[in-house]
Design a protein around this nucleic acid. Sequence first.
RNA 1: UGGCCUAUGGUGUAACUGGUAACACGUUGGUUUUUGGUACCAAAGAGUCUAGGUUCGAAACCUAGUGGGCCAACCA
Length: 667
Amino acid sequence: MSTETKALNFLEHIIEEDLANGLSKDKLRFRFPPEPNGYLHIGHTKAIGISFGLGEKYNAPVNLRFDDTNPAKEEQEYVDAIKEDVSWLGYKWAEELYSSDYFQELYDWAVLLIKEGKAYVDSQSSEAMAEQKGTPTQPGIDGPYRNRTVEENIELFAKMKAGECNEGEHILRAKIDMQHPNMLMRDPIMYRVLKKHHHRTANDWCIYPMYDWTHGESDYIEQISHSLCSLEFKPHRELYDWFKEQVFGFAKNKYPMLPKQREFARLNLNYTIMSKRKLLKLLEEGVVSGWDDPRMPTISGLRRRGYTPQAIRKFVETVGVAKRENIIDVSLLEFCIREDLNKKADRVMAVLNPIKLIITNYPEDKEEWLEAENNQEDDSAGYRKVPFSRELYIEKEDFKEAAGSKFFRLTLGGEVRLKNAYIIKAERVVKDAKGNVTEVHCTYSEDTEKKVKGTLHWVSIKHAIKVEVREYDRLFTDEAPDSHTDKDFMDFINPNSLKIIEAFVEPSLTKAKIGEQFQFQRLGYFNVDKDSTSQKLVFNKTVGLRDSWAKVKPKENNNLQKQPQQNKRSAIEQIKSYGKKYDRMQDQQREKAKAEIQELAKNVTYEDLEPLFGTAVKKTGTRLITMISLGVLLDNGLQKNDAINDFISKALNDKNELLVAEASALK
RNA sequence: UGGCCUAUGGUGUAACUGGUAACACGUUGGUUUUUGGUACCAAAGAGUCUAGGUUCGAAACCUAGUGGGCCAACCA
């Protein structure tokens, strides 16, 4: 395998280090712990890929654990969907587990914690508790129930469990430190009363453990070696470790290994959203047809759209893992699916926007079944027959009465090849009253050896089958629809994200099955949607082919390029960033940079600039940009002082000519 | 007016734990081509947020600053 030469990511480094420090390889164990409160999306595939990928790499078990501690939001439907999606991606979990499996053990440990004086029942309103908790910048204060006796706590907790309390009346919290700088350590809640039906434990419980109390302990019970989660759980790690150590005291003989939580940056894709809540809103508002709408970033949506597990796994692998926030360009996802489908999808011919083509020298009653290669990338794909006749459809875009030399397609008097068939020459056009071309009349030649610039796809009108094609565009018009403070993500919905087209395809497609994938030649990859019936096939456009012709064509919306982050920085910061390279620039570049620095320097104060006077001698670039900025300040009336004179005279003696020149100008 | 995380081409990830920035996508040219696809070749693009320091040597280590992110749900 070539993976051996591949650089390790930071998680693999941690594992390698643990292994080197004596952790036995057969102790490695991972888990993927979704909450069954929604469908999995492309963001989850990263977490899945990391944990299951590590499992494959180290040949270690990976559990699928449903974090089902909140019966208010969780449903069996989601459990089933999650299992289907993970399996579809091609991963096999060692065990299917549920946090709810551990409710009893967790409860027993909670009682032990109470006995040790490390947990207590609080009976205040949530508002009162929130107030005592303080804020990130202010410490909290102890509540009035913090020092209840162990006996009282035991009794109350038993009552909570027995169903004798109402929701909100009492909760159990850990007794840690209300002044702790980490807010999660300020006596976190462990249990709340919830009189709800649970999808697995039904009505057995009316108290439910909170995430922090459940998650780490579930890892511990399952003896997970490395518990990997996304960055926002970093502050939880301290609490994770605290609970873990308490419980270790109760169960170290049964469960000897302490798990280790590590965090990575989650996946973000531009032009889409990942939040389950917001995805649900798209559904409820009828923007999309369901969780598996092909425009959705859900795994089920991608699947229906025609994405393959291999492409998604490749994508996740390519994206990598690190700890910094990232936004990945959808073009990478598109690259991955094209790469995969290019090797796998059979090519066929389909015309989406037809114009009629009549071959005047081809007999009216004649038809030929010509041989066509299914996939030139795959020798085993074989050949099929496609019917040819006098009247064909070609793509409207493929004909222009007259065009420049860059247009390789059909023009009046021009010649072009029909894929798998003959070379034709356009002779004349028929137009309607408005002047639109309705028919192109051609002649054909059986000499197929001839070199012509363009090759067109086509379909015989008599034999074509009519199908529905659904063409998708991105769901949002903004690159980061949910990152605006002043606007709602719903404001950026692309009204044209779905286009339904009546198209014509070659007859070999009659027997196409749901889910089957094709390349419509010169157009893109398409699959058969589940909405297809025996009467009518429905195709989804998965992704278009790369189209370098589209780039040659005049473009419309070239505005709104991304603003580099630099522009948000202060003037002095921007000037400083020139410092690094200024002395290495070429003359022309340097002049431009100088002009910009001088412009920026208008917004710089002496206080901004002074610290730079001490810049090390070797950092000529920084001294140069400082000198230039200083010049602007002096021009604007700044008086010279000792520090300035000193800085200038030192520069005058420098060996760099540029610096000497700039300094002399200020002398 | 706290704590924690983070900063490498346009995007994402690397750099054998200190030896002079690589890979992929994207971009731009070109070759091949019965897909303006694929494949192949080539090029441009960062000197590693800023400043100071340690060192013969720093993207990496230290200090300070700046930018970005996370933390105040009886959610996970």
